[in-house]
Design a protein around this nucleic acid. Structure first.
Lengths: 346, 346
DNA sequence: CGCTGGCACTCGTTGGGTGAAAGTGCTGAC
DNA sequence: GTCAGCACTTTCACCCAACGAGTGCCAGCG
């Protein structure tokens, strides 16, 4: 009897929400009274509903319509009433199967696959953030001469994440010089985080300046140019089309706002970042999320990577009216699976 | 006076199409007669329109509505009437500016930027296909040991394109072994196309079998595992949201079909591939394109890369009702610019 | 005292009907 | 060949009434 709701009130709130989730329409007292699990008359239900409305858990779109759960209502339901079961083995197996043969992929590909799996199992849109590059551990750096003066840098993190970029350099550098740089830098920077890499390069440059070793100086400079500067992590969005079916998005203007919000990587990233700080599955309701264009949407997110220091976050986003009892375990299990797949590489 | 249309008929067809493009509504005789460039009465225009309808260039949604151009009408207009001007210098500059500072990016990033630029300048959705990996020229291959038994392969093409993949291998291989493999393979495979690389690997493996050189055999085997097998090229889609504004897509079901078609990379690829065979800008009208979900859409595409052997294709896709006089030059110029940017790397 | 059936009331939705607006085709005159 | 005029068609916006879903409240029952 948490939070002062009687058993009956909880039962009816649950019933209203469950019905609303499946029908997307205001639900009336008669509908509820017909449910097998409820054994009271419509009139009684109306009384209870009226109470629940007063508490802010339900509203009426208009006087003669049924009730619709408010965001608070849904939140209360999810947090205090809903019992989250473990995902059943069949569903788990299906998700695992989706990763089958994908373990050999580069991190970004793994995360894209994750997004696709999340969206197809949840029937919602999926968000997956790539690990923050700043936290990655340096593994190796390679310079490949494309043509005189143009160098491709390949930066490999211990997680298997790869970043490529092309930089310009003095034309007289040959591939042999670059190979030398590669060996030098790889030794110098082994097993540092990107932040430490940056520091170390700074320090060594100061030292080399004193010693005036031109070759090493050049290597260090190239190394610095190769690092990602202030690039925020990537976000993968998959399964947007799943949202197109929902009746709450039958308005094209609304859809446009949502899809435009999805293009704004940085806001999505901020949204996902919220779940980095806390363990387990988080629920963010649109109004609270304060993300323009995403009002009325709800995100169910979790972090992946180490418990202590999560690498990134993933989740599902869709109408507030979604089947939380199904989606929460999906997000939870998927996050754990991804942690495991990526973790096995360290 | 091409194709048996009188000057007046052409004038009126153009006027109808131009008006339709800007208003998205059936256009009537009165509207046309009010244009400055047309100096005849509505009645006369009605006669001409009636003729044009008989020829299949216009239709009426219903008896008392204005006329709407048919796909054939638009096609005829674009091919026989429209004079495509060169893009003005300001617009060119704006596109070039979009690439500023982006030349240092990896091929895929360049193409993504291209898509973004195309979609923002055309206000339509943009498609860009990545160069077919089979045609790329081998530049370098690197093996990085992630942990015992797990190897990251980085495959660099001469164009600056990079492919990463993770492969499994015997646990006892160390990074020094891998470095040896790298040197051996890079020498062996220098400047071959991917197809030739494949052949060469086959041949060498046969040879090494005879000589039974275990080390080199392993290197060759790893090299083979690293190659992309039957992976078709990627397609980047950008600016989908631009389509959400158009009145012809106010129907959500229609939108869903379109967006789902956009998820089907392979059909998009086939669509783009059509423009690989012919030079210059191509117009593909939805009905002809035979792509499920894309009926009623039109793609304006062009190939980029060498004239003789194009690397990939790019284009814009949107409602048949688009401003071709603006979009054709945009696609044309962008394709040329991309060819130049990527070409300078060979 | 809580539950329930009954009843009056509210309000959105649906369907038919009507008039205005837009546009056409045709005809006859210049 | 061009054009003004006119009769005709069809959509669209609007109104209005009937309908129905749902509520709140009240009085009676266990």
């Amino acid at each position: 009897m948490a939070k002062g709701l009687s058993e009956r009130e909880k039962l009816i709130l649950s019933a209203v929400i469950a019905t609303y989730i499946s029908d997307a329409e205001p639900v009336g007292s008669r509908t509820i009274s017909k449910l097998k699990s409820v054994n009271v008359s419509p009139a009684t239900i109306r009384n209870v509903m009226s109470d629940l409305e007063e508490m802010g858990y339900l509203t009426q779109p208009h006087v003669s319509a049924g009730r619709v759960p408010t965001p608070q209502g849904i939140r209360f339901y999810v947090e205090s009433i809903l019992e989250v079961r473990e995902l059943d083995e069949r569903a788990k197996a299906r998700i695992r199967a989706g990763f089958q043969g994908r373990q050999e992929l580069e991190v970004r590909e793994v995360l894209k696959t994750t997004g696709r799996l999340l969206s197809s199992t949840s029937q919602q849109a999926a968000l997956v953030s790539a690990p923050n590059p700043e936290q990655e551990v340096f593994r190796r750096m390679e310079f490949v001469l494309l043509r005189p003066g143009l160098i491709l840098v390949v930066l490999v993190a211990r997680s298997g994440g790869v970043q490529n970029r092309i930089i310009e350099a003095e034309a007289e550098l040959g591939q042999e010089d670059l190979d030398k740089f590669t060996r030098y830098l790889n030794e110098l920077l082994a097993d540092l985080t990107l932040n430490e890499v940056r520091e170390r390069l700074e320090r060594e440059m100061a030292r080399e300046k004193v010693r005036f070793d031109r070759v090493l100086g050049r290597a260090l400079r190239l190394g610095q140019q190769a690092l990602p500067w202030g690039e925020s992590g990537d976000v993968f969005v998959e399964g947007r089309t799943n949202l197109l079916g929902a009746p709450e998005f039958s308005d094209v203007a609304r859809l446009k706002a949502i899809f435009q919000a999805f293009e704004e990587r940085s806001t999505l990233l901020r949204l996902l970042e919220r779940s980095l700080s806390a363990p387990g599955v988080q629920i963010l309701m649109g109004a609270e999320a304060e993300v323009a264009g995403l009002e009325g949407l709800t995100a169910v997110t979790a972090s992946y990577g180490g418990e202590a220091q999560p690498a990134g976050a993933l989740g599902v986003i869709g109408p507030a009216r979604m089947d939380y009892s199904k989606i929460i375990p999906i997000v939870d299990y998927t996050a754990r699976l991804v942690s495991q797949i990526l973790g096995s590489r360290d």
